[in-house]
Design a protein around this nucleic acid. Structure first.
Length: 855
RNA sequence: GGUCCAGUGGUGGAAUUGGUAUACACGCGACACUUAAAAUGUCGUGCCGCAAGGCAUGUGAGUUCGAGUCUCACCUGGACCACCA
C-alpha cells in the first residue's frame, strides 16, 4: 500500500483528464444543459490569490455533481485582461501590456490547472484578443445606433494622480479606487452609455431571478428609484414683492400684480406634502440659472466666489466638510411657492447636488434634517406643516426631542390640504400641479448614465470618427469586424498626456483619418473603453467562442443561455453585475439574443466571502500576510487545499486563513486513503446496517448541502462517516465506493485514484469496466428513503423544559405509550417526588415535557 | 447618518418548522508506540463543583410547556451606501 503521494496522483490525473477531454462541453442539444459561471480573473502580476479558488472550487463541486447527474455541463474559464496594472507596469518598464498580459495568463493557467478544476479550457475567452474585442466594439456601435451611446460634456471624477476619468463607482470615499489619490470634478467630453434608460427594468426584472436577497437589495439601493414630483418656482425681482408678517415668521408675500419675468427653476421633491413648509429654496453651484440671472443678482460677486470655491473642492473635501453646510443667498431675487404665492429667498449651496434631480430643491427645514441645519445656521424661518399623529398640534421638540420631523403624518396649516394624511396630500397636490401645468409626478434614480470613456491605452478603442464636416461618425461594422483598422496600435509611450488625452492621441498617423461619410479629414476617437466593457458580455462568447460571423450563434445561445448559476464577489454587485445585466438586456432587445433565452442573463447569483489573512485582516503585501496557493498545493496537495477552503466556514462569510486547519483536512484525506486497505467485496459479508443507514443519510445531506452552498457541513458529514468507517474492521467496497463518489467533487484527484484501484479488487468483468472509467462518468448516488428512517429514536424527557432523561423507544411510539414509559423512568420518578404534574407535552419522535409545580 | 448582516468553548464554526446547545475541525492534556523525537493511534477537553447538581449562546426584558432560534430595547463588530431632496 503506497503512501498518499498527492504530487504524483494529482499530476497523473490532471494529465489524463486533459487527454481524455473529460470536461469539454458538447453542443448536444438533446441533453439537458447546465451552465455554471465564475467571474473570470484579471491576470495580475501577483498570480492567483487564495481568494480565487474559493469561488472556483464551489462551482467546480457543483459542476462535477451536475455532470454526474447527467447534465451537459458548461463550466468555462477566461481572462479579463485589459486593465490598469499592466499599463502602469508598461509606463514604468516600457514592456508592452500585451507581453505582460501573456506572461501573466500563462502563470494563471498553470496555477488554475494545478488545482484540478473541471474548466473547459477549449472555450477560453480573453478580452484583449482582437477576435474578442472587435465584438465588444461592435456592441458599442449598436449602442450608438440605438441612441444609447452619446458624447456629452459633463463634470466627471478626475483622478489627479492617474490622470484618468473615473466612473462614480470607482470613487470610494472621495478617493480613487485604484490609487487612493484625490479625485476632483472636471468638465470633459465623455462617451456615455444610457444605462438609466434601463433603470426600471433592472429593478423590476430582479423579480424573475434567484439572487441572494442581499444582492437584490444592494442593486435596488444602488439604482435608487424614488417617486416624487417636479414643479416650477417662478423667479421674481425682490423689490417687486411685498413684505408682510404672518404667524410670527418673517415672510415675503409676492403682490399678485408683481410681474413674473418668465424665469423659473424646477425643483424635485419626494415630499410634496411638506410644500407649505417651504421657507427657502436652494440651487446647486453648477446650476445654469445663476449665469442667466447674473445682472439681477445684487451680490453676484459674492455668489461667484462661492461657486468657484465649491467647484475646486475635491470630492474628498466635499465629503469631509459635509457636516458644516455653507451657502450664499442670491440677493435681489425671490422664488415663488406656487401653492401659496409666498416669495421666499433663494440660496446657492453645495449640499445640493448638481447631477441629481433638477439640481435645485425646495427647502423645508421643519421636515428635513439637512434643510433644518442650514436654516438654523442662516437664521431662516422654520415652519411646521406636518404633525406626527393624532395628537393636537404642539411643539415638535416636545414630541420627538428635536425640532424637525421627517416621517409622514397629518398636514396642518396647508390650506385646503390641511388634515390630510401625507400620502393622500402628495397625490392631490401632484394632481393640482398637473392641472395648472406647473409640474408633474416624476420618478428619479440615483443611478446615473455610465461614463464610458477612459483616457488610457490598454483598453478597447472606441470606433468613432470626428469629422470636421459631419461631426461624429461611427465606424462601419465592416471596418470593425473585418479589418484591422480598429485594433489597438502599438505605441512608444504609455503615459497619458497632461491634457488628459489618451496616449493614443500622440500617434498622428493613427489619429488622422478620413471621414467614412464625406471623405474629408477626420480624427479618430482616442478614448478607450473601461474595464467593465469586456466583462459585460464574456459569458455569451463562451457559448460560441470561435464564431467569426456572429457574436454567438443563435441556436447555441438558445440552448446554453441564460447562465444557470453565477458566483462572484459581493464587490461586483453594483458594478459588473449591473452593467452586464444592462448589456444583456440591450442585446436581447435588438434581437442578438433570442427571445427564448429570457431577459435576464443569470438565473441564479450567489456571492462568496473574502479570505482574510491569519490575523483576521485583509491579505495584502504590505501586511505580509499573503498566503501563496502554490505553496499550499505543493505541500499539502490540491485536494487538501480545495476541501480546506470549503470547510473553513460558511461560504458567504469572510474568514481568516488558518494553516493549522489545512493540516486537519490533510489528515482526513489520509484517513480516506488508508481505508482502502480494509476494503473487501460485499459478496462475502453481511451488510452492516448501521453503516448503510449512515451512508444514505450522508448521501442525502451532501447533495442538499452542495445545492445550498453549505460545503462546510457537507464535509463535516463526510468526516463523520469516514470516522465511522474507520472503526469497522472490514469496509465493504459497496459502501466505501459510494462514499468515494460523494467525496469526488470536493477532492477529484484522490478519489479518482482510489476509484481506479477498485478495478483490481473485483473479478467481475462489468464491475471492472465500471472502475476503469473515470469516477466522473459515474452516476451521482441516490439515497434510499427506507434506509434513512430510524427504527428506534432517543426520546428526550424534560421536566419544566429541562433535560432529565433520555430513553430509547420505537420511532413511531404513541403518545400514551411514551408517557407511560417516561413516567416509569427511575430518574424521572426521583424528580417528580413531591411535585404535582400539571400537564405533559408530547412531540412525536422527539420529546416529552412534563410540566410540574410544587405542591 | 442610512440600509443590511452578525455576536455561541482557547480558535474556525455546528444546531430542519422554537424541542438533547457546543456536531466537525483546530488547539490543548494524558496515555500507547519509540532509545528519543516526529508521525500515528486511544481517551479526555464549555464553566463551577468531590459529588448530587447548578450555570452558560453580547446585555436586559418579553412571548412560550420549552428560546441560540421569535418580539422589543440596548451594547459591540462587520459589509455596503452616504448631503440622492
Amino acid at each position: 500500500m503506497p503512501l498518499y503521494n498527492h504530487k504524483k496522483i494529482e499530476s497523473k490525473w490532471q494529465k489524463k483528464w486533459e487527454e481524455e477531454g473529460l470536461y469539454k462541453a458538447e453542443d448536444d442539444y438533446k441533453k439537458k444543459k447546465y451552465y455554471l459561471l465564475i467571474e473570470f480573473p484579471y491576470p495580475s502580476g501577483e498570480g492567483l490569490h487564495v481568494g480565487h479558488p474559493r469561488s472556483y472550487t464551489a462551482l467546480d463541486i457543483l459542476a462535477r455533481k451536475k455532470k454526474m447527474e447527467g447534465y451537459n455541463v458548461l463550466y468555462p474559464i477566461g481572462f479579463d485582461a485589459f486593465g490598469l496594472p499592466s499599463e502602469n507596469y508598461a509606463i514604468k518598464t516600457g514592456v508592452h501590456p500585451a507581453i505582460t498580459t501573456k506572461k501573466n495568463i500563462k502563470t494563471f493557467t498553470k496555477q488554475l490547472k494545478s488545482l484540478g478544476f473541471s474548466f473547459d479550457w477549449s472555450r477560453q475567452v480573453i478580452t484583449t484578443d482582437p477576435e474578442y474585442y472587435k465584438w465588444t466594439q461592435w456592441i458599442f456601435l449598436k449602442f450608438y445606433e440605438k441612441g444609447l451611446a452619446y458624447k456629452d460634456k459633463m463634470p466627471i471624477n478626475w483622478c489627479i494622480d492617474c490622470k484618468i476619468g473615473l466612473a462614480n463607482e470607482e470613487v470610494v470615499d472621495g478617493k480613487c479606487e485604484r490609487c487612493g489619490g484625490e479625485v476632483e470634478k472636471r468638465e470633459k467630453e465623455q462617451w456615455m452609455l444610457k444605462i438609466t434608460a434601463y433603470a426600471d427594468r433592472l429593478i423590476k426584472d430582479l423579480g424573475k431571478v434567484d439572487y441572494w436577497e442581499r444582492i437584490k437589495s444592494q442593486q435596488i439601493n444602488w439604482i435608487g428609484r424614488s417617486e416624487g414630483a417636479e414643479f416650477e418656482l417662478s423667479i421674481v425681482i425682490a423689490s417687486e414683492a411685498k413684505q408682510s408678517r404672518k404667524d410670527g415668521l418673517t415672510e415675503i408675500v409676492a403682490s399678485p400684480s408683481a410681474p413674473r419675468n418668465g424665469i423659473s427653476i424646477s425643483v424635485y421633491t419626494t415630499r410634496l406634502d411638506t410644500v407649505f413648509g417651504m421657507t427657502y429654496a436652494v440651487i446647486a453651484p453648477e446650476h445654469k440659472l445663476i449665469a442667466k440671472l447674473k445682472n439681477k443678482i445684487a451680490n453676484y460677486k459674492e455668489v461667484e466666489k462661492y461657486i468657484i470655491k465649491a467647484r475646486n473642492k475635491t470630492e474628498l473635501k466635499r465629503v469631509e466638510l459635509s457636516k458644516e453646510k455653507t451657502g450664499v443667498e442670491l440677493k435681489g431675487i425671490k422664488a415663488i411657492n406656487p401653492f401659496n404665492n409666498e416669495a421666499i429667498p433663494l440660496f446657492v449651496a453645495d449640499y445640493v447636488l448638481g447631477y441629481y434631480g433638477t439640481g435645485a430643491v425646495m427647502a423645508v427645514p421643519a421636515h428635513d434634517e439637512r434643510d433644518f441645519e442650514f436654516a438654523k445656521k442662516y437664521n431662516l424661518p422654520i415652519k411646521q406643516v406636518i404633525k406626527p399623529g393624532k395628537e393636537t398640534h404642539q411643539k415638535l421638540s416636545d414630541i420627538i426631542g428635536h425640532e424637525y420631523f421627517i416621517a409622514d403624518g397629518i398636514l396642518i396649516e396647508s390650506g385646503e390640504y390641511s388634515n390630510m394624511k401625507s400620502r393622500e396630500a402628495r397625490e392631490k397636490m401632484a394632481e393640482w400641479l398637473e392641472k395648472k401645468g406647473m409640474g408633474k409626478k416624476k420618478i428619479n434614480y440615483k443611478l446615473r448614465d455610465w461614463v464610458f470613456s477612459r483616457q488610457r491605452y490598454w483598453g478597447e478603442p472606441i470606433p468613432m470618427y470626428h469629422c470636421e464636416k459631419c461631426g461624429i461618425v461611427p465606424a462601419s461594422e465592416e471596418e470593425v469586424l473585418n479589418t484591422n483598422k480598429w485594433r489597438l496600435p502599438d505605441i512608444e509611450k504609455y503615459e497619458p498626456t497632461d491634457t488628459g488625452e489618451s496616449p493614443l492621441a500622440a500617434i498622428t498617423d493613427w489619429v488622422n483619418a478620413k471621414c467614412p461619410k464625406c471623405k474629408s479629414p477626420a480624427k479618430r476617437e482616442t478614448d478607450t473603453m473601461p474595464n467593465w466593457a469586456g466583462s459585460s458580455w464574456y459569458f455569451l462568447r463562451y457559448i460560441d467562442p470561435n464564431n467569426k460571423k456572429e457574436l454567438a450563434d443563435k441556436k447555441k445561445l438558445k440552448y446554453w443561455a441564460p447562465v444557470d448559476w453565477y458566483n462572484g464577489g459581493m464587490e461586483h454587485t453594483t458594478l459588473h453585475l449591473l452593467y452586464s445585466r444592462f448589456w444583456y438586456k440591450f442585446l436581447y432587445d435588438i434581437g442578438v439574443i433570442p427571445k427564448e433565452c429570457g431577459a435576464e442573463p443569470y438565473k441564479k447569483r450567489t456571492s462568496h466571502g473574502m479570505i482574510l489573512g491569519e490575523g483576521g485582516e485583509k491579505m495584502s503585501k504590505s501586511r505580509g500576510n499573503v498566503i501563496n496557493p502554490d505553496e499550499v498545493v505543493d505541500k499539502y496537495g490540491a485536494d487538501t487545499f480545495r476541501i480546506y477552503e470549503m470547510f473553513m466556514g460558511p461560504f458567504n462569510q469572510a474568514i481568516p486563513w488558518d494553516t493549522k486547519g489545512v493540516i486537519g483536512v490533510r489528515r482526513f484525506l489520509e484517513k480516506v486513503w488508508k481505508l482502502r486497505e480494509r476494503i473487501m467485496n460485499h459478496e462475502s459479508g453481511i451488510m452492516n446496517k448501521k453503516i448503510e443507514s449512515m451512508l444514505h443519510k450522508t448521501i442525502k445531506k451532501v447533495a442538499e448541502d452542495i445545492e445550498n452552498f453549505r460545503f462546510n457541513t457537507a464535509i463535516s458529514a463526510m468526516m463523520i462517516l469516514a470516522n465511522e468507517l474507520e472503526k469497522e474492521k472490514e469496509v465493504f467496497i459497496i459502501h466505501y465506493s459510494l462514499f468515494i463518489i460523494l467525496l469526488s467533487p470536493f477532492a477529484p484527484h484522490i478519489t479518482e485514484d482510489i476509484w481506479s484501484s477498485f478495478a483490481k479488487a473485483t473479478e467481475d468483468k462489468a464491475e471492472k469496466k465500471k472502475y476503469e472509467q473515470s469516477i466522473f462518468r459515474q452516476n451521482w448516488p441516490k439515497y434510499d428513503e427506507k434506509l434513512i428512517k430510524d427504527e428506534t429514536i432517543n426520546l428526550v424527557i424534560q421536566i419544566n423544559g429541562k433535560l432529565r432523561d433520555i430513553i430509547a423507544v420505537d420511532a413511531d411510539i404513541s403518545e400514551s405509550k411514551a408517557k407511560a414509559k417516561a413516567l416509569a423512568s427511575k430518574k424521572i420518578k426521583k424528580w417528580l417526588y413531591g411535585k404535582e404534574v400539571v400537564k405533559i407535552i408530547f412531540v412525536k419522535g422527539k420529546l416529552i415535557n412534563i410540566v410540574v409545580k410544587y405542591v
